[in-house]
Design a protein around this nucleic acid. Structure first.
Lengths: 337, 337
DNA sequence: ATTTAGCACTCAACTGTTGACAGTGCTATT
DNA sequence: AATAGCACTGTCAACAGTTGAGTGCTAAAT
């Protein structure tokens, strides 16, 4: 285990490195008044901390920087001694007063502010519509070639599609198809739509007119997205530019591409357990070896969960970010209760 | 005016520079079989072309690169002699067959492919809902605290909002408000919604219950976005990384930020006249001095226009991109007819 | 009157060298 | 156990020298 002094030194190095992004040397530490030891003493302690895996060197004669293990220690440490900076909290709590009763806007706004305060990138992942049930399909003809089809679920998901009737498809016929769709599909799980369309509705029509099949295929295609997709909202992506660890254009590029990749979803989505901090390699994504991802779930109905995530360099202001995301997630969850 | 030979040289320089992104020297040109002149002769011509403003040097002893005026000449030239590469066209025309009758998806997909083929960034700007009329508001209560409000317009815009009833607001009351909203607002322009809510509906309720005002404010806020916003879809943003002119991280950053800026909208939105090519400074955006923006409108109903845009470096493959965007816009417009 | 060959000149990009400097590890001393 | 001293290491920026691609100009050739 670490001695009191080692902990003090380790934490000071981390906090200093978070500020400056420069390796910290023994002389710098020795000058601090809460570390009244000579550089040599500190060097010895640093050598020990390095041997234990908490610190690293960038090259043989450089100062030290925290390792992932170092950050992990730090994160666990501050989660016990968490300390709240009230200023930012006021800004956010204002968002969730009755001025703004539209949920999605409020969440987006909160996350926008989150990335502004922290200077990192943040993400909202809304709940998937998978476990919702069809409340109704609404079909609205607009002209003889155009119509809108709207799907509304019991959890409030709304998905609309602008349909275009190609030659040979009559809008009256479509209306009949939709009518039957409603009868067949209302109250069934959104995830079952494709299956039901294919095996219950299609055979029924197939006997009569061959172009109905084409039509149903199109509708099918139109609504597969709702089954598959989560709402995914990225905010503050451009903040990455300001991080010194991403001045290298290739790393920058890889990270930006990763942020839009489906791997990202897997990371963010997996946890309903509470706050998670994934440091560096714990993310299992190549482009994110220098990144920490903090995720925290929020609840918007009995069994619907979304996630808020913050993506930043491993050299992240954990003590600021962690309480903040927790507070936001809590505020959102409170709305529903 | 330019002599035949000058034109030949100018066009060769541009096409060569588009390929390599390197300044072109007289020796290189002289080696090409359609330019059977000695380096010295070509040097003289290049000096003249520079004096006329079609070419530039990066430094006093470098080869030449095209100036904006040079590109302008080139673009005007190829638009007369446009020449269509059929391979890419097949990919795109497949998108607009009856396999896919959902308009928005088809457009997005087309633009996604556009940025893939060209390796530039492309943008769809959907028509604003401003000139649409309210067809109906649909109000769907989900629980005693949650409800969905859906607005559908005569042009097929659908906007949905998840409302959360804060303490003191009863969902039955809300239902009544929506009912009255429907009566007041159906058939009026979307752009008039705020006004009508404020001056026709609010006074009526205000007398009875003060919290109705709060409620209407919230609904108002929820639906201002639909009035203001166009659909804005960006594809292939990460292609910018591959352009040698944006290896400088600062330029890259500025461009990426500009792409999400509202100035962008103004550029893209302004023209219903047909294809436009804006080269470098013609964009009047600082971060886009090295960029060309090609825009072309598409029509989706009697008086609804959207825009497709391609953003790339001024050193762009004009002869490939221009016919392609024109073809896509035409294909989309054909859907509606 | 064009076109071309020849030559001096320019500038960017690369190379190798150097010295300053920040920091370390080790050892001897307090 | 803590510290002072010292040799050592790697980074960084500045500098000079070299190379090479390309130009402009002039004089000769067509």
């Amino acid at each position: 285990m670490l001695t009191e002094r080692q902990m003090k030194i380790l934490i000071t190095i981390i906090e200093e490195f978070v500020k400056t992004a420069e390796p910290i040397g023994s002389r710098t530490l020795s000058k601090m008044e809460h570390l009244p030891y000579s550089p040599a003493t500190i060097r010895n302690e640093m050598a020990d901390l390095e041997e234990l895996g908490y610190l690293e060197k960038t090259h043989s004669s450089s100062g030290r920087i925290p390792s992932e293990k170092g950050y992990r220690f730090y994160v666990d440490y501050i989660q016990e001694n968490s300390d709240i900076n009230s200023d930012d909290f006021i800004t956010i709590s204002n968002l969730f007063t009755n001025k703004n009763i539209e949920r999605e806007e409020a969440i987006k706004e909160a996350v926008r502010i989150l990335s502004e305060i922290t200077n990192y990138t943040s993400i909202v992942l809304g709940p998937s519509a998978n476990q919702s049930r069809v409340k109704k399909f609404e079909f609205i003809p607009l002209s003889d070639k155009n119509a809108v089809l709207v799907l509304i679920t019991d959890k409030g998901h709304v998905e609309s599609k602008n349909l275009i009737m190609q030659d040979g498809i009559n809008i009256k016929e479509v209306e009949r198809v939709i009518h039957l769709m409603n009868e067949t599909l209302v109250n069934c799980l959104v995830s079952e739509i494709p299956e039901k369309l294919n095996y219950e509705l299609k055979p029924y029509f197939g006997k009569f007119m061959e172009y109905h099949e084409k039509l149903i295929d199109s509708i099918l295609k139109a609504f597969t997205t709702i089954v598959r997709d989560h709402q995914y909202y990225l905010s503050g992506r451009n903040n990455i530019f300001y991080q010194p660890e991403f001045q290298d254009i290739e790393k920058l590029q890889k990270l930006m591409i990763a942020l839009e990749d489906s791997q990202m979803l897997k990371i963010i989505q997996a946890n309903e357990k509470g706050l998670q901090v994934r440091i560096g390699h714990e993310n299992h994504i190549d482009a994110m070896q220098n990144c920490t991802v903090i995720t925290v779930p929020y609840q918007i109905s009995d069994n619907e969960y979304g996630t808020i995530a913050v993506v930043g360099p491993t050299r992240m202001e954990y003590s600021k970010v962690i309480p903040l995301v927790e507070y936001i997630a809590k505020s959102i969850s409170k709305l529903y209760k």
